[in-house]
Computed example of a mutant assay.
Amino acid sequence: MDLQDVIYEKMDGVAKITINRPEVYNAFRALTVKELIWSFRDAWDDNAIGAVILTGAGEKAFCTGGDQSKKSNSGYDSSGGLGGGIGLEVEALHHTIRSIPKPVIAAVNGFAIGGGHVLHVICDLTIASDNAVFGQAGPKVGSYDAGFGSAYLSRIVGEKKAREIWYLCEKYSAQEAKEMGLVNKIVPQAELMEAAEDWARKIVAKSPTAIKMLKYSFNADSANIEGISQLAMGSLAMFYNSEESAEGRDAFLEKRPTDFNKFRK
């Protein structure tokens, strides 16, 4: 596949998938999601691959979620994507990351915000650079992830903290994220990829069947969230048709404060 938004590399049993849109803080569009799914599925099918690293290009961002400039009142621009729903096959991407029988390590360089924050949450392990920033933005831009982005997040950090993250849309440092269990390890920015590759090589050296069965076991307890995610994405597709959702997108693009008060009447 001729990739435009993603860099896909394989070496010594490790696949590295890099979101390559640094000019927009690695925000994803429909094509980006399509290419991410393809890359993960290729790594899934390659028996020589034992671990996957997911990261973002540059030093400013891991991923900042959906590209608001590609979002219309009917969802995101689905040109180049798989079509349907909100115009982004995010649900399929989440399913692929969770289901691939190989651990996925998120190497978070800079901002992991919104849908990008959800991606790192779903990954098996997270290593963050010391300048990483975590947080949600959905309710600020007229969006949400009421599936894995919230239900699975609460399994990791607890319900009180998960509600805080979503309701307030604050930003958290790498150290704060580590303290709440969102991050496994923090390293200097210059050492991030080395640390991720070191962990990946350690995983590749282990029994592939044992690792696969362990991942399936870890996933089993939260497997019901997939059904919740389907309902959530269905409701999100309808929400994107509303003026309320459009207000969040327009305020972001126009760099002005949102005015959601008119929707409380």
Rank of each mutant, 00 (worst) to 15 (best):
D145L: 06
S154W: 01
H95V: 04
G147I: 08
I100F: 00
T126K: 00
D124G: 10
F148W: 08
H117E: 15
E170N: 15
Y152R: 12
L168Y: 07
K160M: 10
G158I: 07
C123S: 15
E159N: 11
G135C: 11
G149H: 04
S150M: 09
P103T: 14
V121D: 01
G116W: 00
Y144L: 10
R155H: 14
F111R: 14
K160D: 13
I105F: 04
N109P: 03
R155G: 04
V121L: 10
I127F: 02
G147K: 07
H120M: 14
E159A: 09
I127R: 08
G147Y: 01
K171F: 01
T96F: 00
G115P: 07
I105S: 05
S143N: 12
I122P: 03
Q175R: 14
P103C: 13
H95D: 07
I165A: 10
G110W: 00
Q175P: 06
I113S: 02
P139L: 08
G116Q: 01
I113T: 05
V133Q: 05
P139V: 03
S150F: 12
G142K: 12
G158L: 12
Y172I: 11
K161V: 12
I105P: 02
V121P: 01
P139K: 10
Y172R: 15
P103E: 14
A137W: 00
C169D: 05
I156Q: 10
S129H: 06
I113M: 07
W166N: 06
A112Q: 04
A106R: 00
A174D: 02
I165C: 11
N131V: 06
Q175A: 14
G110I: 02
A132N: 05
V121W: 00
G158M: 09
D145H: 07
K160E: 11
V157A: 13
E164I: 13
V104W: 02
E176D: 11
P101V: 08
E176I: 04
H95N: 09
N109F: 00
E164V: 09
A146H: 10
L119Y: 02
P101R: 12
F148I: 05
D130I: 05
V108E: 03
I113F: 01
E176K: 09
Y152D: 07
K171D: 03
V121G: 01
I105Q: 06
I165S: 08
S154C: 10
S173E: 08
K102A: 05
A137T: 14
G116E: 01
F148M: 14
S173G: 14
D145E: 07
I156K: 13
G138C: 06
Q136C: 08
I100W: 00
G138K: 03
I113C: 04
V133I: 13
P101M: 13
W166C: 05
T96G: 02
